[in-house]
Computed example of a mutant assay.
Amino acid sequence: MNNVDDAALVEAYLAHVRIDKRLAARTVDLYTGDLARLAQNAQTAGVGLRRVQSAHVRRWVAQMHSAGRSARGIALILSGWRGFYVWLGRQGLVTQNPVQDVRAPKAGKPLPKALGVDESVQLAAHVEEGDDPALETRDACITELLYGCGLRIGELVGLDVAASGTARGWIDLQAGEAHVLGKGSKRRSVPVGRAALEALQRWLAARPALAAEDPALFVGRHGTRLTPQHIRVRLKRRSLLAGLSTPVHPHMLRHSFASHVLQSSGDLRAVQELLGHASIGTTQVYTRLDFQHLARAYDAAHPRAKGRGPAKS
């Protein structure tokens, strides 16, 4: 096998993964494309596949990255190349794996998913016809509190109807404040807006219909405290019935709350306090969401925004 050319090496390896390793046809197809890329790069560099060095691979990674290939996509390509050189080593055709110590660029931290203001209002204003009136009133209140206060799902389910020595959290209607137990068992108070307070009053009036003996603020059909999973299911269903294109989960409403307060106020420190973040660094991710909002507004409104992007030479 010492005298075979690069194309024959690739074909022999693909036969190995297809027959000996019994990889799926889709995986073999991906390997075929990745190895074709490797062979083309090697040919352009004027080296055979068996003469490729780590410096070559790093240069090709940099080229893929600058061309817009995602970090995950590059990592998958490198995985395929690495396996190829492992096999070559077992055949005695290479003495070292040039891909062994090469890593893909770090993936950027994804932005939290947040709804636009119009979508948030659309969800909050939705009325589900035909549902149990008490449950509809409860779900509307849950939606208003998640979006209006930025509560975590654990903080929401921990709310009781009234303050007590054992309550993890409660809402002071008169003061318009929610008192919650957040991460690290840290207590904080969050203002509750007018719409959420009105929704809460409607829910408190409807709650006796469920014959709840549990002190929990939010209870189900059998009068027991709702679980986080139950709320996730109900909120996802509600968002789809409200006509939103994206299924909504509770933390998305927390992200929406933070993003919209920051867009309106520009006060990052206040958003940190409202969310109960121990570090301002955790809150700073919302400045990226805020910039996206500004960029969209610019693209839509500025007469010179069309075709915005790098100048073409």
Rank of each mutant, 00 (worst) to 15 (best):
E128T: 14
E129Q: 14
G130L: 12
D132R: 03
D132K: 01
P133F: 09
A134Y: 04
A134P: 01
L135H: 03
E136A: 14
E136P: 02
R138D: 03
D139I: 02
A140S: 13
A140R: 13
C141G: 09
C141R: 00
I142C: 02
I142E: 02
T143W: 08
T143N: 04
T143M: 02
T143K: 04
T143E: 00
T143V: 08
T143L: 01
E144L: 01
L145R: 01
L146S: 01
L146M: 03
L146I: 08
L146P: 04
G148K: 01
G148V: 05
G150C: 01
G150D: 00
G150T: 00
L151K: 01
L151Y: 03
L151T: 00
R152M: 00
G154W: 00
E155K: 05
E155T: 07
E155F: 05
E155V: 09
E155I: 10
E155R: 05
L156I: 07
G158A: 12
G158M: 07
G158V: 09
G158N: 09
G158L: 06
L159S: 06
L159G: 05
L159V: 08
D160S: 05
D160C: 05
D160F: 00
D160A: 03
V161L: 12
V161K: 02
V161M: 11
V161S: 06
V161A: 12
A162Q: 14
A162L: 13
A162T: 11
A163P: 11
A163Q: 15
S164F: 02
T166R: 15
T166W: 07
T166E: 11
T166G: 10
A167Q: 07
W170L: 07
I171D: 02
I171N: 02
D172G: 12
D172C: 12
D172H: 04
D172N: 14
L173M: 14
L173D: 06
L173I: 13
L173C: 11
L173E: 08
Q174P: 07
A175L: 15
G176P: 05
E177N: 13
A178H: 07
A178C: 06
H179C: 15
V180F: 09
V180I: 09
V180R: 03
V180Q: 02
L181D: 06
L181R: 12
L181T: 12
G182S: 05
K183S: 10
K183I: 07
G184M: 11
G184Q: 08
G184I: 11
K186A: 10
K186F: 10
R187T: 14
R188S: 04
R188N: 06
S189R: 15
S189N: 06
V190T: 05
V190L: 04
P191Y: 08
P191L: 06
V192D: 03
